[in-house]
Design a protein around this nucleic acid. Structure first.
Lengths: 235, 235
DNA sequence: ATAATTAGTGTCAAATTAACATTTAATTTT
DNA sequence: AAAATTAAATGTTAATTTGACACTAATTAT
């Protein structure tokens, strides 16, 4: 039994897959590295887990450094640890995906880093295995969102039904029948209609809704289904 | 940016949550530690990730060492990395859950280790945060199995419908209407009826089925739902 | 005023689900 | 050998949900 022999000189890192939604497509936030190796290439935002911090804390720290945001929805997803995944050292990286509201926080970006949102359909070549990380996080997001209403974390406080609808379409790359979708959504009691309307995106304007936090907190802990049963995973 | 400074002296380990099904309840395989610290206490089977191996490989190695089994269904689940989770050193552990067929392999157990199956409802106190690991893996299993038919990995090659039914009841702690369940299952084309019957568990005997591997491989990659929609997560 | 655009509500047949009952194939008992 | 017993397997039906479709409503632009 080789417990407690110090035989694994491994560096531990975290990488953040930061998802956002711009109203059209699901986006991921990438940075341009200004340090070696792989200077000037695009990558996920990451950092090493420090001696006195948990991986969760490291991920929050890294996220805050890039976006300025705290108390963001984050979830651990897969660990990438192939011995050869980085050329010069043995780094095992724990991935976290974060769901943030793009609209609200764009102004904070790019101050210290060259950071940019890219649509998940079409982002530049990334260093190491970061594209696999994104693919894996996306799969995880789809799985989780098929059971729990976490996608609301990507929307602002006030949102419209067309927005949610577009969000689900973006996340799953499908077309949704808005009428059926909105019926289902309203029946869930998850959202509360406000008096105000969003006039930005249409002539008629769409009513704003807010989350029913009581129901949300209850449902976030129990399974829910917003997807049609025929939903295809591969797309 | 503190990339590539060797500032994180962290040991990386894996722990395996090994699930089995004895026909009645979902079980987890635990070992009694015969080394310090925490000698003679029950724990999960684990080990350190070696310099030249990936975490996946480490987990397979650890699983094989305990059970003798290879090519077992394994899935990465959460990482436990609180700085204080082990008293004497900083160990970050990646958890994997494995689904194995208890019946077939009990004879291999306990040769090198004192290993024992315990029902998930009622297992002894464990070292460190291993109980949280089990809870987390169980949650993960439930989530995954709500979308994909992975629970078949817990059954022998030949199984009966009452067995599958009991398995789902065990995993989710619910009562299932066998009539509706079996109708749904048969309609999925996922299982193929054999001529043989299992006479062990009833007078009449229940027909054996085997997996339709073609359909299985297709469905394992796409969402599926075996649970009633009212299914409660908290139990 | 009219056209154009997108939000929001409505309808209905088909499919699925949930609840419930009966029949069937064995073994055990008498 | 017949009857009782046990659990498997199949059947029935009403209620609900789904998916496909059409229309009305509110606003802006022309």
């Amino acid at each position: 039994m080789e417990y407690y022999k110090e035989d694994s000189a491994i560096l531990l890192a975290v990488d953040c897959i930061i998802f956002g939604f711009n109203g059209e497509s699901l986006q991921v936030l990438l940075i341009k590295r200004d340090f070696e190796p792989e200077r000037n290439k695009w990558s996920l935002m990451g950092g090493f887990v420090q001696a006195d911090e948990s991986p969760e804390l490291a991920a929050s720290r890294v996220l805050k450094k890039l976006t300025g945001l705290e108390n963001v929805y984050m979830e651990q997803c897969s660990v990438f640890g192939d011995p050869k995944r980085e050329p010069n050292s043995r780094v095992v990286s724990i991935c976290y995906f974060a769901l943030i509201d793009t609209q609200k926080y764009t102004h904070i970006l790019s101050e210290e880093y060259e950071a940019k949102w890219f649509p998940l359909q079409d982002y530049p070549a990334l260093i190491f295995d970061h594209d696999q990380m994104i693919a894996s996080a996306q799969h995880r997001l789809r799985m989780k969102a098929a059971l729990y209403p976490i996608l609301f974390e990507l929307l602002p406080e006030k949102f419209t039904i067309p927005q949610i609808s577009a969000l689900y379409e973006g996340v799953y790359n499908i077309e949704i029948d808005k009428r059926n979708f909105s019926r289902k959504l309203l029946a869930s009691d998850l959202i509360i209609k406000l008096d105000e309307k969003d006039k930005e995106n249409s002539k008629k304007g769409a009513f704003y809704f807010k989350l029913n936090t009581a129901i949300y907190k209850e449902k976030i802990m129990s399974f829910l289904r917003y997807l049609p049963s025929w939903f295809p995973e591969n797309s």
